[in-house]
Structure formats: structure tokens, C-alpha cells
């Protein structure tokens, strides 16, 4: 396993980037462009005054979900190396991971009881 294994990913990324950049960038010269004030205003249904989103406030729950996600995703990352080596760790690995999961579940139950998982 060497860095050469990772090179194809670079080729793929470049190839994948060429596609949209060419389609959006190069072809912009052949596209019509006839802007009008109505066209350039943000979408709104049947209301003349356009709304702005940059000063819009949104639910704090989105932040909460993001924080919970970070916690749980880090747990998953810890599980990956454990899962690969599990056949050598055997019973020791199982018990270790059960302890780990119990700690995780305690936090999970706490978040549930505090209503962090309820979207309302």
C-alpha cells in the first residue's frame, strides 16, 4: 500500500471537477442573459416585497442536532479500528466495547430524557 493507491482519486476529482466547471463556465457565453428586476428578486409566492434570508433567524435545534452528531460520529470513528481488529481481540474486545457503548448509551438516554432528540 503506497501513495500510488491514492493517485487515482486525484484523477477522479479533477475529472469530476472539469465536468461542472466546463458546463457552467464555458457555456455561459452562449446562454441568453436578459435580467429583469423581477427575475433577480428572491422567489416569493404572490407577495411583491422580496424577503431576505441573511438576517433570518432559525431554530436553535439545528445547532443541537449538529452537536449531537459530532458526539455520535466520533463514537463511530472509534468503532472502526476496533471492528477491524475484533477477530484478534475476541472476548476482551467485546467487553471493552460493551463498556464503551454503555457509557455512550448513558449520554444518549440523558439527551433523550432532556428532550434533545424531540423535534417540536
Amino acid at each position: 500500500m503506497s501513495t500510488a493507491n491514492y493517485l487515482p482519486i486525484l484523477y477522479f476529482a479533477v475529472m469530476a471537477a472539469i465536468l461542472p466547471v466546463a458546463a457552467i463556465g464555458l457555456l455561459s457565453f452562449v446562454r441568453p442573459s436578459k435580467p429583469t428586476p423581477t427575475k433577480l428578486s428572491p422567489y416569493e409566492c404572490g407577495i411583491a416585497a422580496p424577503t431576505e434570508a441573511f438576517d433570518h433567524r432559525f431554530s436553535v435545534r439545528y445547532y443541537l442536532i449538529a452537536v449531537l452528531f459530532v458526539v455520535f460520529d466520533v463514537e463511530t470513528i472509534f468503532l472502526f479500528p476496533w471492528a477491524v481488529m475484533y477477530h484478534r481481540l475476541r472476548l476482551f474486545g467485546l467487553i471493552e466495547m460493551l463498556v464503551f457503548l454503555v457509557i455512550l448509551v448513558v449520554g444518549y438516554v440523558y439527551a433523550w430524557r432532556r428532550g434533545a432528540l424531540t423535534w417540536a
Binding site: 458546463a23 457552467i24 457555456l27 455561459s28 452562449v30 446562454r31 441568453p32 442573459s33 436578459k34 435580467p35 428586476p37 427575475k39 433577480l40 428578486s41 428572491p42 431576505e52 441573511f54
Partner: peptide
């Protein structure tokens, strides 16, 4: 879609 006008809102 390739030849359709590309509208970008003014304040975007």
C-alpha cells in the same frame, strides 16, 4: 438545460 438562462438573484 445547457442553453437555458442562468438566473442568479441579485442579493445572492
Amino acid at each position: 438545460l445547457l442553453f437555458k438562462e442562468d438566473v442568479v438573484p441579485e442579493k445572492a
